[in-house]
Amino acid sequence: MTITVAGNKKDVAEGLTVAQLVIDENVETPQYVTVTINDEFVESGAFESTVLKDGDVVEFLYFMGGGQ
């Protein structure tokens, strides 16, 4: 199946979970990443059980703190 990850189309195996995609994509600091699928946020506790579907668009978001 084909999904889009951070703007790039990728062929991936059927049954791929968000948790496995985070590993496959070598996401830095995965404990701090927020994931959206088709512009909808996925709870971090649901990464293991959320299975991606053909045509899904996945984005990894990092919220940075800072300022004064």
Score class of each variant (00 low, 15 high):
Met1Ile: 08
Thr2Ala: 15
Thr2Arg: 15
Ile3Leu: 00
Thr4Ser: 13
Val5Arg: 11
Val5Asp: 11
Ala6Asn: 15
Ala6Glu: 15
Ala6Arg: 14
Gly7Gln: 07
Asn8Arg: 15
Lys9Met: 13
Lys10Ser: 09
Asp11Pro: 05
Asp11Ser: 11
Asp11Thr: 14
Asp11Trp: 04
Val12Gln: 01
Ala13Gln: 10
Gly15Thr: 06
Gly15Trp: 05
Gly15Phe: 01
Thr17Pro: 11
Thr17Val: 04
Thr17Leu: 06
Val18Ile: 12
Ala19Asp: 06
Ala19Pro: 01
Ala19Thr: 02
Gln20Asp: 11
Leu21Phe: 07
Leu21Arg: 08
Val22Trp: 07
Val22Met: 02
Val22Gln: 09
Ile23Asn: 13
Asp24Met: 05
Asp24Ala: 09
Asp24Asn: 13
Glu25Gln: 14
Asn26Tyr: 09
Asn26Ser: 11
Thr29Phe: 14
Pro30Ser: 00
Pro30Trp: 01
Pro30Leu: 00
Tyr32Val: 02
Thr34Ile: 09
Val35Tyr: 01
Val35Gln: 00
Thr36Asn: 08
Ile37Arg: 08
Ile37Cys: 04
Ile37Lys: 02
Ile37Gln: 03
Asn38Thr: 05
Asp39Met: 06
Phe41Gly: 11
Phe41Leu: 10
Glu43Thr: 15
Glu43Trp: 10
Gly45Ala: 04
Ala46Tyr: 05
Phe47Thr: 05
Glu48Cys: 04
Ser49Arg: 02
Ser49Met: 00
Thr50Trp: 00
Val51Ile: 15
Leu52Ala: 02
Lys53Met: 11
Gly55Cys: 01
Gly55Val: 01
Val57Cys: 10
Glu59Gln: 08
Glu59Ile: 03
Phe60Lys: 02
Phe60Tyr: 07
Phe60His: 03
Phe60Trp: 00
Leu61Cys: 09
Leu61Thr: 10
Tyr62Gly: 07
Tyr62Asp: 06
Tyr62Trp: 08
Phe63Glu: 01
Phe63Trp: 04
Met64Gln: 12
Met64Leu: 12
Met64Ser: 05
Met64Ile: 09
Gly65Cys: 04
Gly65His: 05
Gly66Met: 03
Gln68His: 12
Gln68Ser: 15
Gln68Asp: 10
